Amino acid sequence: MVVVSRHGSPFPVDEDLLSWSVEHSPAWAVAVARGVTVTGTGVIAYALAALAGVIAGRTARQRILAAAASMLCLAVGQALRYAVMYAVARPRPPVQDWATHASGWAFPSGHSTTAAITAGLLVTAILVRSPPGRAFIAAVVVCWGVSVGLTRVYLGVHWFSDVVGGWLFALAWIGLCLCATAGRRPPAVTAPKRPEALGTDDDRTPPGSR
């Protein structure tokens, strides 16, 4: 609503960060940014979403269903993001400042949204399974998701507020998906009770048989 109320015009921080990116763009840094930004869309994002499902599942059937659900979450999120993008119709930064290819309107950033949704799915799966070092792994995943968004600003194809919009959209969408699936996790498998927990032989003797 804030972006629409300004008719898509950039905020002062948007212009400042774009100017800094243009002035500090050695060839090696641009190459690294392009390598990171490409991981936030396409096949890589869907492969990571499927991986999140595989991590979350406990059996083969659960892994298949969770992988399919994760990819569906990402696909529907991207579709909704497109709807918002066309509704807002915010122009991108000037083309002469671009350091990579881009298309479509600016808000919210597609790469930022996709990477954030994917990172959210992975972090959720990691927290569900609680592997050793889960905090470190989750932090690495979050850093990757944030880095993809920042490269869009560094490469000059998005305003910073486009990226923030993508992150907020992804958080909202992941939250809705988690609420929709709450309570649908399969019950944990519990070990059978030991025979002695059922009582002694005398305790199980029918009344009147003594």
Rank of each mutant, 00 (worst) to 15 (best):
V2W: 12
S5W: 10
R6E: 07
H7G: 05
S9A: 15
F11P: 03
F11W: 14
D14W: 10
D14R: 10
W20L: 13
H24W: 06
S25W: 04
P26R: 12
A29T: 04
A31V: 05
G35V: 01
G35W: 07
T37W: 06
T39Q: 01
G40I: 08
G40S: 01
G42W: 03
I44Q: 02
I44Y: 04
A47M: 11
L48I: 10
L48M: 13
A49H: 08
A50C: 01
A52P: 01
G53V: 08
G53E: 03
A56E: 14
R58W: 07
T59Y: 04
A60R: 11
A60F: 03
R61F: 05
R61M: 04
L65M: 11
A66Y: 06
A68I: 06
A69W: 10
L72T: 12
L74Q: 07
A75S: 15
A75E: 11
A79F: 14
A89W: 00
R90Y: 04
P91F: 09
P91N: 00
D97P: 03
W98Y: 15
H101S: 01
H101C: 00
A102L: 05
A102Q: 09
A102E: 14
A106D: 15
P108G: 03
P108C: 06
S109A: 15
S112W: 03
A119T: 14
L122M: 15
I126E: 03
I126T: 08
P131C: 02
P131V: 04
P132Q: 09
R134A: 12
A135F: 09
F136A: 14
I137W: 04
I137C: 03
V141H: 05
V141R: 06
V142I: 14
C143S: 12
W144Y: 06
V146M: 13
V146W: 15
V146Q: 12
S147P: 01
L150R: 11
V153F: 09
Y154F: 12
L155S: 01
V157R: 03
H158F: 09
D162W: 08
V163N: 05
G165V: 08
W167K: 10
L168K: 01
A170E: 08
A170L: 12
W173H: 13
I174M: 14
C177D: 02
G183A: 11
G183L: 14
A188C: 08
A191L: 12
P192S: 10
P192K: 09
P192N: 10
R194L: 14
D201K: 07
D202W: 05
D203T: 06
T205D: 02
T205S: 06
P207E: 15
P207V: 10
G208P: 08
R210N: 08
